[in-house]
């Protein structure tokens, strides 16, 4: 006579076993899905750049503000491949469509809104920053000390998540208005010199 086995207790055990089984099943099912659960680094970085376009305002008197599209430029070797187009192609920000351009030299880059400076331009970074000083272009890069070297937004990976640092001195100098939403989420740095 197993009187001591409470019905409620048995029910709990069964429910627990069922939950485990369902969980495991779901997991196996999920594992076999062709869908990529984990997006790639540059997919998310592209989405970050889209958000920068949304949350930055260019000075009204600037050439950038007058344009009827938002131009995102990639200077140097492009690490995004087609991901930039896939993620933000055809989207709009500030009511304007976004277009993506790729440049090999700085001369071509002077009219864009956001310039992603690829690591391949590493040895020329200080020169590029200097040349863009009066151009109202939001510079984005991935080099270790990008923000401290006068770049505006440094995108980096920490514990597999994308983070960014904003150099306020550089953004102010270019008269770009960054929304409080960006500033809240970023780590703020200053020019070291």
């Amino acid at each position: 006579m197993m009187v001591w086995i409470d019905k409620k207790f048995v029910f709990h055990i069964l429910a627990f076993v069922l939950r485990i089984a369902v969980l495991l099943l779901c997991n196996f099912a999920a594992a076999d899905q062709p869908v990529q659960l984990q997006p790639s680094e540059y997919e998310i970085k592209a989405a970050f750049i889209y958000n920068f376009a949304k949350f930055v305002e260019w000075p009204p008197e600037s050439e950038q503000a007058a344009r009827d599209s938002i131009i995102i430029g990639i200077l140097g070797q492009d690490p995004f491949g087609s991901l930039m187009e896939q993620v933000i192609g055809g989207k709009t920000a500030h009511g304007k469509t976004i277009s993506i351009e790729r440049y090999q030299s700085l001369e071509q880059a002077r009219h864009c809104h956001i310039l992603f400076i690829s690591d391949s331009k590493l040895s020329r970074l200080s020169h590029i920053i200097e040349q863009l000083a009066d151009k109202h272009i939001l510079t984005v890069g991935e080099m270790e000390t990008f923000a401290r070297e006068g770049g505006m937004i440094y995108l980096y990976v920490q514990e597999k998540r994308i983070r960014f640092k904003i150099n306020m001195d550089a953004a102010n100098a270019a008269q770009l208005k960054l929304s409080s939403k960006l500033l809240k989420l970023a780590e703020i740095v200053r020019n070291t010199e």
Binding site: Q38, P39, S40, E41, Y42, E43, I44, A47, F48, N51, F55, P79, V157, K160, R161, I162, R163, K181, L182, L185
Partner: peptide, 12 residues
């Protein structure tokens, strides 16, 4: 953006 910051990525 705050959600994007929580997504784990596969590193290139």
């Amino acid at each position: 953006l705050e959600e994007l910051m929580r997504i784990e990525v596969t590193l290139a």
